[in-house]
Structure formats: structure tokens, C-alpha cells
């Protein structure tokens, strides 16, 4: 079993408050890491510090295959999705999907096929701003169907999705882990799908 991510003694503070300290875990191929914690416990901060959006107070993060931390190369091996969907309200669903793919330099993306997969066929000509929050989320999630990154870091991926959307996403998660990928995610909803290699970490947060 190959290791994808190794985190040692991570610590973070936000506005003078210690969110977590001495946090260590490793992630192997096929792992799903579910990070739990109350609102404001520091789940998002943890995910954001994994990809370098938030500065670390202490600790080391190593990505495998071994590379320089936060160098350009590992960015290709990691896919991060935050709270915000990064979907442009003025552009149509189709344009959003295409530009997203072009930005990540994935050639030959069949945007129509992707829209069909996430169930947005028929809405492709509407500006994304006129779609619902869940539909915008689906546009953003199309990335998961063509990304070649082995490590997915997803902050509340189920937000605003209906049950069919959640099922669809979990199905995709299962495919990804079966192919040797790994997922770090936060979610307030319990997973209806039982991954084979599920790990849980609970962040307390808030202690001074």
C-alpha cells in the first residue's frame, strides 16, 4: 500500500486561538479521511493549510511521491475544493465547465458528457448565476470526473446537494479510491457509503 500524504505534528492558530496542535496522520492509497468537528473547530483551516492556503504554525506535510512541499509539481497531484464553487455567475454552465478544464490544462474534455453526468443537461445555456446553489456546486464538481490528481481535498463537498447528487458524488468517490486515490474531506452529513478504508479525525478546537 503506497502512502500519498504524511502529516506530522501540525499546529495552527487563528486570531490567537489554537485550533489544533500536534495533529499527525498518514493517508494511503484508497483512504478516505473524514475530518469531524463542530463549527469553527478549524476543519476548513486544516484543509486549507494542507494545500498551503493558510500558513502553518508548526509541523511538516509531505506529499508522495516525494516532492518539494508546495512546489508546483505537487499541485498537479492535489485537487482542492473549498466552500466557494469558483463558478462565474455571468457565464453559462457549459462555458464554466470548459474554462475550468482549460485552466487545469486538461485537453479534450467532453463538456456535454460532463454536464450529463452531473445532471445539468438542458440547463447548459443558462448563466450560472440563475442556477440554484446545488446546481452551481454540480458545475464545480465536474472537475472530479476528469482530474488526474490522486489526492482530493474537499471541504464540505455535499453542501447544497440533494440526495441524488450526494449518491452520485459518493459513487465517484468510490471509483476514485478504488483506482488508488485518496480523499480528505469534511462533512456534517454522515456518509451513506461505507468506504473500505475510512479514517476519522476529530478536531476539538478552541482551546487556548
Amino acid at each position: 500500500m503506497s502512502t500519498l500524504l504524511d502529516v506530522q505534528q501540525l499546529a495552527s492558530q487563528r486570531a490567537g486561538r489554537t485550533l489544533f496542535a500536534d495533529l499527525s496522520f498518514t493517508l494511503n492509497a484508497g483512504d478516505v479521511l473524514h475530518i469531524e468537528g463542530e463549527n469553527g473547530a478549524g476543519k476548513s483551516t486544516l484543509l486549507r493549510s494542507l494545500v498551503g492556503l493558510v500558513e502553518l504554525q508548526a509541523g511538516t506535510i509531505r506529499f508522495f511521491p516525494e516532492q518539494l512541499p508546495f512546489a508546483q509539481e505537487w499541485r498537479q497531484h492535489t485537487l482542492f475544493m473549498g466552500h466557494k464553487p469558483a463558478v462565474k455567475a455571468e457565464l453559462t454552465a457549459l462555458e464554466n465547465v470548459r474554462l475550468q478544464a482549460q485552466l487545469t490544462a486538461v485537453a479534450n474534455v467532453d463538456a456535454w458528457q460532463l454536464l450529463e453526468t452531473v445532471g445539468l443537461l438542458g440547463l447548459e445555456d443558462l448563466p450560472a448565476g440563475q442556477l440554484s446553489a446545488g446546481q452551481q456546486r454540480r458545475i464545480a464538481l465536474t472537475r472530479l470526473w476528469y482530474s488526474k490528481a490522486p489526492l482530493w481535498i474537499l471541504d464540505e463537498p455535499f453542501t447544497a446537494l440533494d440526495t441524488r447528487g450526494i449518491d452520485l458524488l459518493q459513487q465517484r468517490f468510490a471509483e476514485h479510491t478504488a483506482q488508488g486515490g485518496a480523499i480528505v474531506m469534511t462533512s456534517h452529513q454522515a456518509l451513506t457509503w461505507r468506504p473500505e478504508q475510512l479514517k476519522r479525525i476529530r478536531i476539538q478546537g478552541g482551546e487556548l
Partner: peptide, 11 residues
Amino acid sequence: DGTLEQLTLQP
């Protein structure tokens, strides 16, 4: 809308 965040994570 989160685009800026994604841009910083681009390779």
C-alpha cells in the same frame, strides 16, 4: 466566488 483561491492553487 472562490476563483482567486483556485488560481493560487494552479500549478
